[in-house]
Design a protein around this nucleic acid. Structure first.
Lengths: 232, 232
DNA sequence: TCATTTATAATAGTAATACTATCAAAAAAG
DNA sequence: CTTTTTTGATAGTATTACTATTATAAATGA
């Protein structure tokens, strides 16, 4: 991912497009740093304003509230993973290998050294996604926000991966459920490894992403393969 | 579960034991109703006070803040599931059948018609757990709260189920990861079925718990069985 | 039973959060 | 170089998340 790419979202969770201005980009890049440092509940627009040498009021011109900013960050992340999965799998003919590669991207999305967008630190963003992303849809407003298209990016990726599952075995009956479970588990297991280690065999030392990938690979392929293959 | 049982927690996330007084019990039973109705972010002690004809200040004598109240509710839920799993599986000799039964309890914990504790509506509590439980450990305070023992109940259940996995196949290398994934997925898939249906094949119509159970049963047993059996 | 401890209700108050409004200055666009 | 747009500075409001105080009510215990 050496050349610069552009990730655009399928919805407008913002008031003003943050990538269109200098201030907007600073809001994004510093909010990533600050949410990671403080945790989402302790993060406020006032603190962010102080951090970037601007004011609360100016930030409110870009995002209605901090929840919508989180939606933006998480949606951006899923759009980026979707792009990366597509890019990394497009010339792989074998369905099993393709799904394997996709799982690798999914579990190693936090390892990227070569950021594709200058003002977004993907490694820190990944930590935010692991720790906070479930909050974007665990709200009373989930149905209204779903209608607004706020979750299109994760749905698109889920569907793409589910199709890869079906390419391996068209008879597997729960491709989307399997993938959404894996997408959540990829983050959860890393979080558990770090904070609640007795809930997982994954160790936070060494290469937790690698171990998570192995666990998920085995989980997915045994589920897919234990259904007798039937072509469409 | 006809006779009354007593669920006690392994930690003190409260200031005063709520089950020891009339007010304490009203705090628990009405907070369950109110969190379900408003969602956790819109829920406040002031609103709860109004609901139960008491005051904010009185509630603060039982719980330091609303987060600790949620910890209490979710811990109670896991302790109750743990109790139910133990009760429902203790005379089943066959390891596979035992794990099956446990998975059934896990996915159908919201179906209980015959509440074991008078002031706790387990069906509503289950909805709260499905929608809000991940928030109890997704905070900056997770490590400190873990030290205080706030997550002992879920860890105990996870370990119990992991042992059931090992009883089926002692060679399976990720029993805790598998179970923690399943515990989370049981709730997530129900939530997705209701709010983000394109992420799952589970339908919210009819019997989503039954479908979730089938999905998880297949997922777990294919993972466990695809490792060659080796006895300890 | 009465004295004493303890729990609750009522009220008030503070600091922080989550915003909204106004207006002038600066920057960008035409 | 004028007009529009964006930002910064400031102020202000309602709500949240508490803490403190005191009077009363209830429970306890000698």
């Amino acid at each position: 991912m050496a050349t610069s790419i552009h990730i655009s979202l399928d919805h407008k969770c913002y008031l003003r497009e943050p990538e269109s201005t200098e201030l907007g980009k600073r809001i994004i890049s510093e909010s990533i740093r600050l949410i990671d440092a403080l945790g989402f509940e302790h993060f406020t627009f006032k603190k962010l304003g102080a951090e970037i040498g601007s004011t609360e009021a100016s930030i409110y011109r870009y995002f209605e509230n901090k929840h919508k900013l989180l939606v933006y960050l998480v949606s951006w992340y899923w759009a980026w993973v979707d792009y990366t999965v597509t890019f990394q799998t497009h010339n792989i003919a074998d369905p099993r290998e393709r799904l394997c590669r996709a799982l690798e991207v999914l579990t190693k999305a936090g390892q990227d050294d070569d950021p594709s967008v200058a003002y977004i630190d993907e490694r820190i963003l990944y930590r935010i996604v692991v720790a906070e992303s479930s909050k974007v849809y665990h709200t009373k407003e989930v149905d209204a926000e779903n209608k607004e298209g706020y979750f299109l990016e994760i749905k698109r990726l889920c569907h793409r991966l589910a199709e890869m599952v079906l390419a391996v075995n068209p008879a597997y009956p729960y491709p989307h459920a399997l993938i959404s479970t894996a997408m959540e588990a990829a983050h959860q297991q890393l979080y558990f490894a770090k904070h609640l280690p007795s809930l997982t065999e994954i160790k936070d030392t060494q290469h937790p992403e690698e171990e998570t990938k192995d666990f998920l690979k085995h989980l997915l392929f045994s589920a897919i393969d234990s259904i007798q293959y039937k072509s469409k």
